[in-house]
Structures are given as C-alpha cells and as structure tokens.
Design a protein around this nucleic acid. Sequence first.
RNA 1: CGGGGUGUGGCUCAGCUUGGUAGAGCGCAUGGUUCGGGACCAUGAGGCCGGAGGUUCAAAUCCUCUCACUCCGACCA
Length: 481
Amino acid sequence: MGKNKNKVEAITPRDEDFARWFTDVISKTELVDYSPVKGFMVIRSYGYAIWENIQKLYDERFKATGHKNVYFPLLIPESLLKKEAEHVEGFAPEVAWVTKGGDKELTEPLCIRPTSETIICSMYAKWLHTYRQLPFKYNQWCSVVRWEKTTRPFLRTSEFLWQEGHTLHETAEEAQEETMQMLNIYREVAENDLAMPMVVGQKSEKEKFAGGSATYTMEALMHDGQALQCGTSHNLGQHFTKAFDITYLNRDNQQAYPYHTSWGVSTRLIGGIIMVHGDDNGLVLPPHIAPIQVVILPIAQHKEGVLDRAYALKDQLSNAFKVELDDSDNSPGWKFNQWEMKGVPIRLEIGPRDIEHNQCILARRDTGEKISVSLDDVEASIADLLEEIQKNLYRQALAMREAKTSKAVNMDEFKHRLKENPGFVKAMWCGDRHCEDEIKDETGASIRCIPFDDEQEVIGDGVCVCCGKPAKKMAYFARAY
RNA sequence: CGGGGUGUGGCUCAGCUUGGUAGAGCGCAUGGUUCGGGACCAUGAGGCCGGAGGUUCAAAUCCUCUCACUCCGACCA
C-alpha cells in the first residue's frame, strides 16, 4: 500500500502547482506528446478521440443551420495576406513562410495560413455575382499555424486544429444575426456537452480580431482562476469584402459589397475541459465527449465465467454506449487508478459475487460514489448515471466559477480581490483604452468580455473602476491563458 | 524575446562538489502464485550519460558553445 501511494502522487497535486499538474495529466493520460518540432504537439489517439467527439457535436449544428463544409489551401500568397492592412499587421509577427519549392526560390513567398479570411475572400470574389446566391455559408475543419513564442499543449501551440466558418450576407443585420447565432451554438455545445459554463460578450477594441468590426467571445474560468478564451465569432463588416473587392448585383441592380462573418473553435477546448473538470487523480471527462463512457473491469477474471459474463455485458452495452473492457493482467486496484486517471465517467465492476447476485457495481468518476445495480436494467441505470454525471460536472464548474467571481468598484479593491481570490472580476469600465491598459499593467488582468445587455449589471455607483468617470458597461476582467 | 529550472535505459531520479569508463525504483519480457482500491517471487533484456568542441593518460563528472523541454514574465484572433 505504501508503495502504491507514490504512483498516485505521480500526478502533481492540482492545487500545489497547476501548471505541472496540467502537463502531468496530459502526458500520463496519453492525450498528447511533444514532437520533434518545437511548439508542435502530437495528438495521440485518446486526445484525438475527444476532438472527434467535439467536432461531431459542432459539425452537426453547423449543418443544421445551413452551413456546408469546404476545404481551402494551406498556403496563402503574400499579396493576399497583405490586402487587408489591419489584418496583416495583426498576424504578420506570427506567420510562417514557405519561400522555396525544392531548390528554387519562389517568385512570391507563401504563408502557411494563420487563418483563412484572405484566401477565402479571394475565392468568394470570383464566385459571387448576384444577391440570389447569398448568403454564403461555408465552414472548414483544418489546422492553422501561428509561430508562437511560448507554447503549451492544447492552450497555445504553433499549429492547432480548428474549424473556421466564413459567411457572406446581404445586410449588416443578417451578418450580425449570423455572428450571434454561431456564438450561441458555441455556447450551447460548450455548456451542454463539454459541461463548461461560459461567460459571453463582446471583446474590446484592443482584444478584437485584426481586421474585424466586432468580436464576440465565450470565456471559461479554469480551476486556477485564469480565464480561457474558448471560441470567437467575428462580425467582419465589409472590411474584407471591400479589400478583396467582393461585389454583387443587389436587389436594386446596384453593385454592392456583402457583409462578412467568421467564427472558430479549436483544440484549445480540450485544454479547457481538462482544466475545468480535472482533479488530483487526473482527467474527468464529461460523458458527452468521453471516448470511453463505461469501462468494464472484470474482478477475479481468471475465475470460471467471469470473463464470459464481462464480454457479454460489453456486447450488450456497446449498442448504447462507448464501452471498453480491460481484461489485461493488471490488478484491479491498478486498473481502478488507471481508468480514473483517464477520466472515464463510469467504471463497471463485475466479479463472481456480482454474477451470483445478478448485479454489477457502477462507480462514478466525478464523485467516487459506488452503487450496485441489477443486471436486468443495467442499461437504464448507466444512461441515467451518465446524464447525472454530465449535469453534475456543469453544476460543479458553475459553482467553482461563481466562487471565483468577485466585484470591484475601485483599483484597490480590484487588486485585492484578484489577489485573494483569483478569477473573474466584474467591474465597470468607461470604454477608454487608457484605463484598459492601466488595469492590465497594474493587475495583469485583461478585459475578457463585455457582457450583453441581458447579462449586464451596475457595479457600485456605475463609475469606471480605473478612472472614476461614469461608465456605461460592466466588463469581466481576468488574467488569461 | 528576458529571467529561472531540467536534460543520465521507456518513466522518475541518484552519481557530478573531490574525473578512473554507469546505478536504483518503477515499467518491459518469460515462468509461476495472485485478483472487490495501484499484488508478489524468480529469471532476463535494455543506457556509454541531449548535441558539438575543448582540457586530460582518462570526462556523465571540469570548461566553452549549442539544442530541447519546462516554469515565470513580455508578446499573443
């Protein structure tokens, strides 16, 4: 027993050193590994399976709202990238370039896409002729490269997997509607399926997308009190459509520029899931995206009939759930810990005693609670339990976020709150960039978002937490990944 | 990009101060006993110490350079 404890402690306790805990968890659970190229990660099968599940949930909703998938090239000519001035300025510092084909220097350098607005707009310009074709609603699943200085698996890597939706609309109103619709879809999946409560709202001018009109975001709070931007939806107005000369004949037989949106979520979501739900024993995966929802552990599997019964159970359950059976030679105790570390929502134990009583044991990952259930209605029991775990993870995460959210009416209070209870600070903001910068300088916290009207509130006397002048809006501040 | 830390079998690390040609635990393989919260016994395979250069009769150990990872900061749709 004494020795065993060391293995449990192989994962650094979460509250002792959060960063180490994170890297321990992602490598020991074999989600990712470091690659030979600095800043690039290998996503291993278990991690990729989570991504596939997230992809599926979002992709279904994109399609249900009329979007179609496409694929644009990895490489973008320099001239295209430079067409929208603000955009290139924002991205240029982190763009990777291809300058040679074989031995030959290219006549024009090609960048590896950091995002695809430019190349997509160049094609939209060719394709769009009449209002009858609008809206354009396309999405692509791909990876992008941004040459980051500091990288961390899932949270910030030089290459990451994502989807980027790009739409064109006749009117500004339609584009705004689309922008909000996608933000809502992002939030719904994040909250219902990833069990991560989100704060949504608009980004400040400073934090918005380079070249856009308005950026909307969903932000989650991690267990260490830092915020993570989990998805953004941009209303790009006519910035790009004008820069790329995308014109069409409108209903009045006039040349017009369409309105443009883009939106994306990435593998960073997986980092969020880990940091919101994980504990000292490792991952805790929400049932809706867990690659394995139920792991069957036969107990005393050498004994007559145990393995047969376990296999039969696996076949039976596989119709409704993602099931794995661990019939390796490892001891039961080892398996318990292993699968807990992997974050599997439900462990099903079945041994001679259970078989004798026509029952099995279900142990839930989120609370550790064990119950014994009849084999006659085990499917219903599991289905109920999975949903209960899913809901409980959301409740826990929401409670955690609320406990780490405070309010401040002046800078002293702001610093105090953030120091004694790192997390979101809700505070009034006058809208001035100077105050935003000053708050960042003094506290390390940035504006994560300015909530929409229905989630707005007045903190204190309604004056800016920094300069004391009247402020119209409350904003969420936090240190962020 | 600035500051700190770390690189030794698959993993975690010891050895380095006081140079003498590499160790432990775990893991792995084989056989056996076990099996309801990280089991045990026996046997065995596996590394020339991140890389390059230098000092020396001799370098994991000393010196120089370099690379990678990691943490903090700056930067970062």
